[in-house]
Nucleic acid binder design. Sequence first.
DNA 1: ATAGCTGCAAATCGTTTGCGCCATG
DNA 2: CATGGCGCAAACGATTTGCAGCTAT
Lengths: 148, 148
Amino acid sequence: MHDIPSLDARSFRELCADHGLAATHQRQMLYDVMRTMPGHPSPEEIYARLKRRIPAISLATVYKNIHLFVERGVLKEVSMHHGSLRVEMNGHPHHHLVCSQCKAITDIEEEDFGMLPTLQRLPGGFEVDRYAIDVIGICAACQKAKSS
Amino acid sequence: MHDIPSLDARSFRELCADHGLAATHQRQMLYDVMRTMPGHPSPEEIYARLKRRIPAISLATVYKNIHLFVERGVLKEVSMHHGSLRVEMNGHPHHHLVCSQCKAITDIEEEDFGMLPTLQRLPGGFEVDRYAIDVIGICAACQKAKSS
DNA sequence: ATAGCTGCAAATCGTTTGCGCCATG
DNA sequence: CATGGCGCAAACGATTTGCAGCTAT
């Protein structure tokens, strides 16, 4: 129930220990597959690749472990906006405050930023339309809830 | 098949005309409900509220019209990250380039920004953890595809 | 030993689609 | 009166859950 080293098994074992996770074969392979896939693959894409190493693996295991890794701080989500469709009517330039606990979104006017980002170098041929800034943190309500 | 003014019917009619849309009762009520709901409600939440005004309305109509409004530029989506779950391992501080056409995500290192945003005022009690900047535009590949 | 993990299949959630009828331009 | 919009129900894709057996600590 082990072989295909390819990633330092010792350090993976430590990583799991540090985060209170059992160092299972499927977790190591999942981690390794994610480490070596370029870009930001979807769970399905990760699953497809992983299946080549562990044919019996289940998609549910992939989801469960990705979430576990996120909860334990091994990975982070690319975006806080992954649930359902949200739109806005607010016409003037603004950005968002996002609560990482309850996912609530609040608008912040662009004037409330003292400074706006400016990109120096960017990958050839990308034509910038606009910037969207998410200020991520914990909202007042969730802090209150936590300290109870 | 009309009454409950509550929003200036005349200006809604113009809005629709400007965007090449038929000014239907359900569209006006949808628009009005979205205008008057605080925050960034989900389609389901909008539907629930709308149902109080038009009991026979269907959720499919809500979705169809929200998409139509977005396509025609009446509304915009809060985030480009609405598909499936994406995570990252990239440990050092970075942000994202997002193609609004093909939705591809590319990392940009934080050093590639000449200037980072700084928030002056923020709603009481929000504890900031980090900033996530999305640079939205059209990637090289999609531009090439467009000009073909 | 035992708490935690796995694979499977079924369930669920958010969203989309096909279609016959109806309202708007 | 012709198009486009509506409501309905079925279809779908992504994700979650319950459970019985297996595994890491």
